[in-house]
Amino acid sequence: MTQTTPFKWTSSSRTDVGLVRKVNEDSILEIADRGIWAVADGMGGHTLGDFASNAIVSALSDLQPRDSLEQFATDAEATLQAVNRQLRTEAYNRGAQIIGSTVVVLLACGRRCAYLWAGDSRIYLCRNGHLLQLTRDHSQVEELLSSGTLTAEAAIHHPARNLITRAVGAAELLEVDGEMIEVADGDIFLLCSDGVSNEVTDQEMRAALVTGNCPQAANELVEIALMRGGRDNISAVVVRADDLHVTEQTVLNPAL
């Protein structure tokens, strides 16, 4: 089935082991011509986090575009559920307590995008110069923030800020959150692991993304995280949507 979209999708990505860890447990996926992007962050401190994140990305890479965004998203969630079962079995066979990974996925179809996630890997949207975090972390700190028992300032250095409440492979039942959004000309999405979001400020993210240059933005975000100490693995996938209809109008009538 061939996916039709009125947008030209371009993207760029970069992942780095950082300056502290010996193994990069992050995995990234970037298939612009099929409208699929993802970041998976193997759970630090657990066995085979790199195996888990790679299993997720490998499975998602087999997804094929659909005429319906809803079906595309359903396929992606079914894929994550299958990997969840695979990782649970793998952990049992290896005698490991958990083999798991966070994940965030972006899917493009028509004039809309779907995004799915489990854990604290994030998606941001930069639109008309404004930055918006689309996902909500599945973490203990996020739960405290939502209940009003913790301030945003206190959350930055909270000792539980890295404790997540959902991940692929972490439990028998995988809960995946998902949303859909209408795409606008010039929209720029950022998918990233917490190696970026914990080190790079919203203002710095916006400054990098607003240029509209995907390779430059991905490199800049990773370099900032490295400059801050690179304490975790670092991954960024930057995706841009350009409305072909708007581009054609501008070419035909430069006055527009």
Score class of each variant (00 low, 15 high):
T89S: 14
T5E: 08
N213F: 00
N54F: 05
L226M: 12
P6L: 05
K8S: 10
T15W: 02
S68Y: 09
G178H: 07
Q64E: 14
V200S: 02
Q97L: 14
Q249I: 11
V222T: 14
G35R: 06
I164H: 03
M180E: 15
L244D: 01
G169C: 08
V176Y: 04
H157A: 09
V104D: 00
N24L: 11
G18H: 11
L107E: 04
Y92P: 02
S13D: 09
A236T: 04
E175M: 15
E142F: 04
T135F: 00
Q3L: 14
R112C: 06
V222P: 03
C113D: 02
I31C: 06
G129W: 12
W117S: 02
L144K: 13
P65I: 09
R85W: 05
Q97V: 13
S27W: 01
T201N: 08
E223S: 14
V237S: 07
V196A: 01
P65W: 05
T79M: 12
E220P: 02
I98F: 12
A241R: 00
L173N: 12
S11E: 03
D41K: 06
A32G: 06
S12Q: 15
H46K: 07
G148F: 10
G18K: 03
E175T: 14
A184G: 03
L131G: 04
V168G: 01
V168C: 13
H157V: 00
V239R: 01
L87I: 14
E70G: 09
I98T: 14
V176R: 00
N253D: 14
R94I: 05
D243R: 04
D194T: 01
L226H: 08
Q86Y: 09
L19V: 04
T247D: 15
T247M: 13
T135S: 12
S68N: 12
